[in-house]
Design a binder for these strands. Structure first.
Length: 285
DNA sequence: GGAATTTGACCTAA
DNA sequence: TTAGGTCAAATTCC
């Protein structure tokens, strides 16, 4: 049996389950969607997640490891720079994968509270308007790898598609406030894991594909992490669900540091006992 | 004068 | 081979 194909199918199933939950949540006015349906969707999603980890345990693959470890492919120029300290290798990069990206279409270029610096503009084939490239202002002073692309897609009324790549690791953000909303105290540090590709905690407004129009194909980068304040200095916050600002979506579990160690090694090198994984992945309400 | 933008060149993935 | 992403010098803005 080709376990890699199985894995790919599971990844696809996970994506579909994620989208299903998003759709259900989108329509959730408690009149049309019963808690049972929500629970059902959540369980389907969890089953896919658990199965993927199980598969990776017994058939470790680079493919899945890439999915479950914090993405590094994005800092292409970063890795490239360190790799090629030989000078002036302009344009040395890896073309962006679909890790951690989401789109937003708006009538004006999106204002998301972050500071961006334009670093390029390009005519794109078969498009009427050029595409603009932005990086976080704190790319260097804050080592923030977030970038976005803005492209006008319509003349009248003017419509812009903004595609975000990566998450902000700088503190120059409004999004941190969104994150903070979901936790009790803003004083110390924890790690937020999100089984979704839409970090940092996009609102539905920021992240249109989270709605029923999820025809996009967000890549399955299951684990993203970012340090955020939390109430207990040794605790880490985990989320098995997309961390939307809608609190009903949150299914966070605070883990002590030693549990985090177990889980992180489970996710990264599959060296952990299966029961530990199941324990840690058992996100019930 | 420093920060931001423009734009042609460079480089790689597809 | 080429479309697309990034770099960096030149230019503009504040």
């Amino acid at each position: 049996m080709d376990h890699r194909k199985v894995q790919e199918e599971l990844v696809r199933g996970h994506e579909f389950a994620t989208q299903l939950r998003l759709v259900i949540n989108e329509k959730d006015d408690s009149a049309t969607t019963t808690p049972f349906v929500q629970t059902l969707a959540k369980n389907v999603l969890r089953s896919f997640t658990n199965t993927l980890f199980l598969l990776d345990k017994y058939y470790p693959s680079h493919h899945l490891s890439n999915l479950v470890t914090p993405t590094k492919s994005e800092d292409s120029q970063e890795s490239c720079k360190s790799f090629t300290s030989f000078k002036n290798r302009r344009g040395c990069y890896k073309r962006k994968r679909t890790t951690q990206e989401w789109e937003k279409v708006s009538e004006a270029p999106a204002v998301d509270g972050h500071h961006w610096r334009k670093y390029g503009q390009k005519e794109i084939l078969k498009t009427k308007y050029s595409r603009n490239y932005y990086r976080c202002t704190h790319k260097y002073d804050g080592n923030c790898q977030a970038t976005k692309q803005v492209q006008r897609i319509q003349e009248d009324p003017p419509l812009y598609k903004t595609t975000y790549f990566g998450h902000h690791t700088c503190n120059d953000l409004l999004n941190s406030e969104i994150i903070l909303d979901s936790i009790s105290s803003p004083s110390d540090t924890s790690i937020l894991l999100s089984f979704n590709n839409s970090f940092p905690t996009p609102t539905k407004q920021d992240c249109p594909f989270l709605s029923s129009s999820a025809s996009l194909d967000p890549s399955p980068s299951f684990i993203k992490e970012e340090r955020i304040p939390s109430s207990s200095s040794n605790d880490y916050m985990l989320s098995s669900e997309p961390t939307l600002d809608d609190s009903s979506w949150h299914n966070n579990v605070t883990l002590p540091l030693d549990h985090w160690d177990v889980l992180s090694s489970a996710l990264c090198d599959s060296s952990v006992d299966l029961d530990d994984i199941n324990l840690l992945l058992d996100f019930d309400d």
